[in-house]
Nucleic acid binder design. Structure first.
Lengths: 194, 194, 194, 194
DNA sequence: CATGAATGAGTTTTCATTCAT
DNA sequence: TATGAATGAAAACTCATTCAT
């Protein structure tokens, strides 16, 4: 007699659709992905998709928000904010690397879908605000004269950009991920430290 | 004796088409850009486009190669290879910044979009090889113990990624381009120098 | 001894479905009404509908026949056929008006929409025959030289058409129903009387 | 050497589409008519339709306005307003009959598409106003005590409804058109005259 | 050469109907 | 018996490409 776990019906299917869409959007972009292809990959009828989402746009937006939040959580949850800046940076870079390794297409998706026309207001807001806490941490460290006195947004853009650059290089097979990430961390610490 | 000024229209039209396509691809992506829209922006009949290019894909590929080559040329042509590494880096960063400023949508086109399915073999080859000369310069500087002993591809990915990151931040209005670029240069030099 | 109040639900549900379909078909037409919407309005699962009717078409046909019969009954049942023609006409017009007032969407359904492709043979037959008794009454009155010697079908078409016309005008808000109906009766009596 | 009449290109196709849509909408209603069917009947590719109209709705609306105006013109243009009322009525009834005979599906279309949700504001305005001039003529005749002192809208609704009723009866094969129309005219004159 | 009207294959979306529970 | 999630066939609409002029 098992009571509850027997079914996982609706939410399961919803997740399947989102997962399929994520992969496809990451690989081929939003406009390059036909809805029936998402349905097929999700092992679901084409019409079923519209029981869970109002439109294709609703899917990207849901996906964008959900993944942006997951990324923010992966980076920020339980972050030892009291720790020395260098150690915090290490921890962040590590988390970034782990997240990228475990959710490869999430990063591809998030990078690929910057401020596109099909993102709605709420998604755009999240885009701007999700990683805001990091900025406070940066500014704090700057006040302590540990990080360079450069506009916080610039430092963050540098680090994020560099990270994405390395990720992409490794994906192109130019570079082994693990080693590259470790080396890159050291480099980027030099980039931002005072 | 052929009436020189009367003609030239062919090459002219071809350029118009490419220019229009570049802007649109940069703004909306390949799949998000209808051919008739390219034609309209190029002030050319929709059919005319097919007198110059075999297909929409032929346009992206032509564009990709041409712009990739222009970028390589802008970075490499007449580069004072004998100069000190720091100075070379400065020059490269400067050229990068100038290129980005003058050809904003070229960078957007080349980097802010994924060129997956529709790029052909030749374009893919260029993607890998166009900036190869820079790698030699990096490796040379590493041997002279001026740059960090990190896989050259990683250093290049870091710098390129960071540059793109700053560009994007400035495009989002978070950061003033000029100042950001200067600060970023200093940071990234620290990132790669020994 | 069966618990009477507990049951009845079948017929009840069937009626709910028909009632919902009637309203919707009257408002939006057959092709403009999605089956799930009928189910929703009937407060019934979408599948349930198919336990009572073989198809959407089966619903319209059932509805059409039922309502046509109800209309015929409302007009004809207990009609004092022996009364003077003028009085009979008055009674008929009155009944027509009452029926329209009490079953507004029935009239809309029966008359203000075309029922072409989806009506079956039986429904078509009823369409022609339901009001046949009236024709006999008309022809009888013509023989008595009370009504004009015009093909009975024409007289009936005139009266019915005029009635529908006034109904529609009142529905558009151009005209107050009560007064209009009274005036119209007088007019149409002049139209048909000898 | 024929100069101009050689082509009738664009407008011709646009008219074909409208003509095809008119017939189909009259036969099967708006929602019952698939766009590809319109295209086929118009001997035009399905996509072509969208070069001339923004949507299926745009077609009905264009059609509705155009036909409503044609009907108004057929009834009103050159109407001898100075003539005696009886004669005017005769003329109007004649014109109505001629219009119905020559443009059978126009009447069916106009009758079928009353105040439906896909008609836009402009179409609705025309619906109310196109035949307004007739109302003035009616009210004038009432002042001269030639027509009954019944709200003008009611009289018009009666006549129009009766006309439509006869038309429909004749279309169902119950009644020969010519004779019926003549008889009906006499009847309806009695209906409205004082 | 240049065009843009024409098109049908392909896209997103809806909906009548089924079926597992 | 009742349900409503699931579906694929079909609807409205778009767009890369062609071709007559």
């Amino acid at each position: 007699m098992r009571p509850a776990a027997a079914r996982i019906p609706q939410e399961d299917k919803r997740e399947c659709i989102l997962a399929a869409a994520l992969e496809l959007f990451a690989e081929r972009g939003f406009h390059g992905t036909p809805v029936p292809l998402i349905a097929e990959r999700a092992k679901v009828g084409a019409g079923t998709l519209y029981r869970y989402f109002a439109s294709k746009e609703a899917i990207v937006n849901e996906l964008y928000r959900q993944k942006k939040r997951e990324l923010a959580a992966a980076l920020l949850d339980g972050l030892p904010l009291g720790a020395p800046t260098r150690q915090l940076f290490h921890e962040l870079w590590l988390r970034l690397g782990r997240f990228a390794a475990e959710h490869a297409s999430v990063l591809a998706f998030l990078e690929l879908h910057h401020h596109d026309d099909y993102l709605d207001e709420e998604s755009r807001r999240l885009e701007r605000e999700a990683l805001m806490p990091l900025q406070l941490f940066v500014e704090d460290a700057q006040q302590k004269q540990i990080l360079k006195a450069v506009q916080a947004e610039v430092l963050m853009a540098l680090v994020w950009g560099a990270f994405v650059g390395v990720m992409r290089a490794s994906k192109m097979g130019l570079v082994p991920l693990e080693a590259a990430m470790a080396a890159a961390e050291a480099c980027m610490w030099e980039a931002i430290r005072r």
